[in-house]
Simulated assay, not measured.
Amino acid sequence: MNEKTPAESATRTAPAAVLTRRATAETCADPSSVMTLLADAHPDTGGFTSYRSTFAKGAAGAPAHFHTRASELFFVISGALQVLVGEEVTILSEGDFLAVPPHTAHVFAAAPGCEADVLFVFTPGMDRFDYLRLLGRVMRGEADPKEIAESSERFDNHYVDSPAWRAALEASA
């Protein structure tokens, strides 16, 4: 058995509280969304990454992808988000929560005709803010899209083809 004694447990440093004020939070923007960076993976966060995205009507989110190390959590603050998990497309509405486990293909966008305001959390976290910054630069034409593919291992974003998502987008067009 590998139990810690009370003295050993007491010497471990607990993660510190993390507070990010809206007025000082960094934002990344592209033509169709604004991401507010809340907490990146760091010893102080206890191992999570969180950001908030506001999507314009019909704005695309990430392409179909999966993560090998993290679960991705979605909480819809307002509006509606169209998501594909595996092969199933659904609409998340205000107050809905979704947890996507590792190795599960998923993709999301603002639902047709809707805006969406969504809180994202990754656990365990990893330094993802550089990825979000890169996305903004690519969307604004300031960086080459191949940089996203080249960063897949570093940021644990593994892109896949999704015929089910393409069919859902065509049906809503």
Rank of each mutant, 00 (worst) to 15 (best):
T90Q: 09
E153Y: 10
P112F: 15
K146S: 14
F122Q: 02
V107T: 15
L98E: 11
E88L: 13
D156G: 03
V138D: 04
L135H: 03
L134G: 09
V118F: 01
R154W: 07
E150V: 07
L98T: 13
V85M: 01
A109V: 13
P124Q: 05
F155D: 09
E147I: 01
S152H: 00
L134V: 09
H103G: 08
L119A: 06
P145H: 03
A149R: 04
V100D: 05
E153T: 10
D130M: 08
T123S: 14
D127S: 15
C114M: 05
A143R: 09
V138G: 02
V83A: 12
V89S: 02
D117A: 08
G141P: 04
E87D: 08
P124A: 09
E87N: 12
Y131D: 13
L92Q: 02
C114K: 06
E150H: 07
A110T: 11
R128Y: 15
V118L: 00
A111S: 07
L119F: 06
E142K: 00
Y131Q: 14
F97P: 02
D156M: 12
E150R: 10
V89W: 00
A110C: 13
H103W: 15
D144A: 07
K146H: 11
K146N: 13
G141I: 10
A105M: 12
P124W: 02
F129Y: 11
F108K: 11
S152N: 09
F97Y: 10
R128K: 14
I91F: 07
L84G: 13
D117P: 05
P112M: 07
R137H: 13
E142L: 11
D156R: 08
R140L: 11
K146L: 12
F97G: 10
F120H: 11
A143M: 07
K146P: 03
A149E: 11
V100H: 02
F122V: 00
C114L: 06
A109E: 08
E147L: 06
F97E: 02
A110Q: 06
G95R: 06
A109L: 05
L98V: 12
E150Y: 06
